[in-house]
Deep mutational scan, measured.
Amino acid sequence: MQIFVKTLTGKTITLEVEPSDTIENVKAKIQDKEGIPPDQQRLIFAGKQLEDGRTLSDYNIQKESTSHLVLR
């Protein structure tokens, strides 16, 4: 499924993911596309910070959901 990640600069990154993917996996995909190390990434969805060990389905992130990327 596709999800979108919006950066603070207003850029939207499109990612191909599975509901069973962990947040860690998603951060690795963002690193592949954008070159941002996962330890600098914070992903926010529905006002919550997403934890590495959880999956997209844990957070009820469905296709075409948009989460926000904040850099630390």
Score class of each variant (00 low, 15 high):
Ile44Trp: 15
Ser57Pro: 02
Gln31Lys: 10
Arg72Pro: 11
Thr22Leu: 10
Glu51Trp: 05
Glu34Gln: 07
Asp39Trp: 13
Asp58Cys: 03
Leu56Val: 07
Glu16His: 11
Lys6Thr: 12
Asn25Ser: 15
Lys27Pro: 00
Ile61Phe: 06
Gly47Asp: 06
Asn60Pro: 03
Asp52Lys: 04
Leu50Glu: 01
Gln31His: 14
Tyr59Ala: 03
Val26Lys: 00
Phe4Gln: 09
Thr12Ala: 05
Gln49Gly: 06
Thr9His: 13
Ile61Glu: 01
Lys33Pro: 02
Gln49Glu: 15
Ala28His: 11
Val70Tyr: 12
Pro37Gly: 04
Gln31Cys: 13
Leu8His: 14
Pro38Asp: 03
Lys29Cys: 04
Asp52Gly: 05
Val70Gln: 10
Arg42Leu: 15
Asp39Lys: 11
Val26Asp: 00
Ile30Thr: 01
Pro38Phe: 12
Asp21Tyr: 05
Tyr59Val: 03
Thr22Met: 06
Leu43Ala: 00
Thr55Pro: 05
Phe45Pro: 00
Leu69Trp: 03
Thr66Gln: 09
Val5Pro: 00
Ile30Ala: 01
Thr7Arg: 05
Thr14Val: 14
Asn60Ala: 08
Asp32Ile: 13
Met1Asn: 03
Ala46Lys: 14
Thr66Gly: 10
Gln2Arg: 14
Lys48Ser: 08
Lys48Pro: 01
Gly47Asn: 06
Ser20Ile: 06
Thr22Gly: 03
Gln40Val: 10
Lys33Arg: 10
Asp21Phe: 07
Glu24Tyr: 14
Arg54Tyr: 13
Gln41Val: 09
Leu15Phe: 04
Arg72Val: 15
Glu51Ser: 07
Ser65Tyr: 07
Ser20Trp: 14
Val17Ile: 04
Gln41Cys: 07
Ile61Met: 07
Glu24Phe: 14
Arg72Ser: 13
Asn60Tyr: 06
Lys11Asp: 07
Lys27Gly: 01
Gly47Arg: 03
Lys63Leu: 09
Ala46Cys: 13
Thr12Ser: 07
Ile23Met: 03
Ala28Asp: 06
His68Gln: 09
Val70Ala: 06
Glu16Met: 13
Asp21Ala: 07
Val26His: 00
Gly35Arg: 05
Lys63Trp: 11
Pro19Gly: 07
Arg72Ala: 14
Ala46Asp: 14
Ile61Pro: 02
Arg54Gln: 08
Arg42Trp: 10
Lys6Glu: 09
Thr7Phe: 15
Lys11Tyr: 12
Gln2His: 12
Ile44Asn: 05
Ser67His: 12
Thr14Lys: 09
Ile30Cys: 01
Leu71Pro: 08
Leu56Asp: 01
Leu69Asp: 02
Ile13His: 03
Leu43His: 01
Phe4Trp: 07
Gly35Lys: 06
Ile36Thr: 06
Ile13Glu: 01
Arg54Cys: 10
Asn60Val: 04
Asn60Met: 07
Leu69Phe: 05
Ile36Cys: 05
Tyr59Met: 03
Thr7Cys: 10
Thr22His: 04
Val5Asn: 00
Arg72His: 14
Gln49Cys: 15
Val17Gln: 01
Lys33Cys: 09
Ile36Val: 08
Gln62Pro: 10
